[in-house]
Simulated scan of single mutants.
Amino acid sequence: MSDISMNAEAKTGAGLSYWQLVRRRFFRNRYGVVGLIGCLLILLSATFPGFIAPYAPETKDRATIYSPPQRIHIVAPEGGLTRPYVLGFTEEMDANTFEITFVPDPEARQNLALFVKGDEWTWLGMTFETRLFGTVEGGFFHLLGTDSLGRDVFSRMIAGTRVTLLMGLLVMVASCVIGTGIGVSSGYFGGRFDMVVQRIVEFVKSFPDLPLYLALVAILPRRAEPITIFIMFAAILVLLRWADLSRELRGKVISIRSMDYVRSAVAVGASDGRIIRRHIVPNTSSHIIVWATYQLPEVILLESFLSFLGVGVQAPMVSWGTMLNQVRDFQSFAAAPWLMAPVGMIVISVLAFNAFGDGLRDAMDPYSND
């Protein structure tokens, strides 16, 4: 083979499998790669919250209730670079308005360091005491301030990543499995089975989502264990989210089952189960993967919204929505606007997963330019 033909083959992607082409297209999409990096960082935070957060989510510093965020300094007061440190606050009250203000106190300096000893945390049954960063002196510092009980907002936000993301993944996977099974079966078998299934799908989709979510969540037993409420809450979200994927896959399977390779498999006596596993589902996998990447941020937003209203995840479990529940009125927001920090994590996660989904969609498009 000549050098010209080899270069042309490398340029057009000839000789590469479908998934190799998808990978090459995806990593050429900068927007999608940035989204992937953001998703990996969020997953890392959800996997090791005890290591990344400086304190346990329930650790209280009663001396700094509603304390504002502390700024990290790297320049010494006398000039020149120094090791990172933060300054504590002293409270001052206005004699006329009785408003309390926090003034940095140079005498209350706390030096910061990496890999310090802190609150115990567990991972896979193993107990650790090392935290990613903290104070050398063992005191408290609060990058994003504290709440009404003196708990560190940054630590609780990192801990809430696990609960919120676990809810999103659980609902997404369950909806994906149910929607794929019902949609593929309905489109492949057709006939009376398809008619019955589609009437069920239409019945499910006929309900308005939000009012039904609120009605179903309202009947959850409030005296049950938080983990029980968490599972029941996830089941309610799954209840109405599988139908969209089911309807989309049904249409794709109806067109796929008339393809020559499916007819050939039927002609040689392949069973329905083998045809579905080896031919139908693999050819709908790109649609399923892209749907899943878009579904996850939607569930994160829905969980955060319902938990913000107080009808979702319940304490002592920590999620981004339960943290925002503390600032449901204007007075709380005016007194401690830093309690809105989880909004930033919600926005970042939604943008990251959407960017990742856009990159996958473009990479899996067979008509896209390589």
Rank of each mutant, 00 (worst) to 15 (best):
A113K: 02
R263C: 08
L114M: 14
Y294N: 01
D3R: 15
K11Q: 11
S286P: 03
F133C: 07
A10V: 07
N111Q: 06
Y188R: 09
A218V: 01
V311D: 08
V201W: 03
A224G: 04
R24A: 12
V311L: 03
F154W: 10
P69D: 01
D94V: 06
T47N: 07
A215W: 12
R28P: 05
R241A: 07
G80Y: 00
G160E: 08
D61A: 11
Q20Y: 00
I42V: 13
T293A: 12
V75F: 02
N96A: 12
G310D: 08
G269D: 15
R23E: 01
I178H: 09
T122A: 10
S5G: 01
S155L: 04
V184P: 01
R247H: 02
R257G: 01
E107N: 14
D358P: 09
V116T: 13
Y294A: 00
Y213P: 03
V311N: 05
W121C: 02
D272C: 02
V75K: 07
V177Q: 08
P68E: 14
M167N: 12
G150F: 00
T130N: 12
L166P: 00
D119Y: 03
A336E: 03
E92R: 14
L239Q: 01
D94N: 15
V173G: 01
P337D: 06
F27A: 14
V173N: 05
L239K: 04
A265E: 12
R30E: 07
R156K: 09
R71C: 00
F154T: 01
L210C: 05
S264L: 06
G138P: 03
I229K: 04
G191K: 15
Q20R: 07
T284R: 00
M345T: 12
Q326E: 13
V266I: 12
S186N: 03
P104Y: 05
S17T: 14
V86D: 02
G312K: 02
L302D: 08
L21N: 15
T293P: 10
T64W: 00
L124W: 05
F330E: 11
R151V: 06
D147H: 02
R241F: 00
L169P: 10
S319D: 08
E137W: 01
Q314T: 15
A315T: 13
G35Y: 01
V34P: 10
S304T: 14
D147Q: 04
R328H: 06
G191T: 12
R83H: 01
R199Y: 11
V281I: 15
L351S: 08
I289S: 06
F89A: 15
A159Q: 10
A352F: 00
D365V: 09
R24K: 15
F308V: 04
L301C: 06
R83D: 10
E58L: 12
L309M: 13
S307L: 05
D358Q: 11
R131A: 09
F128I: 00
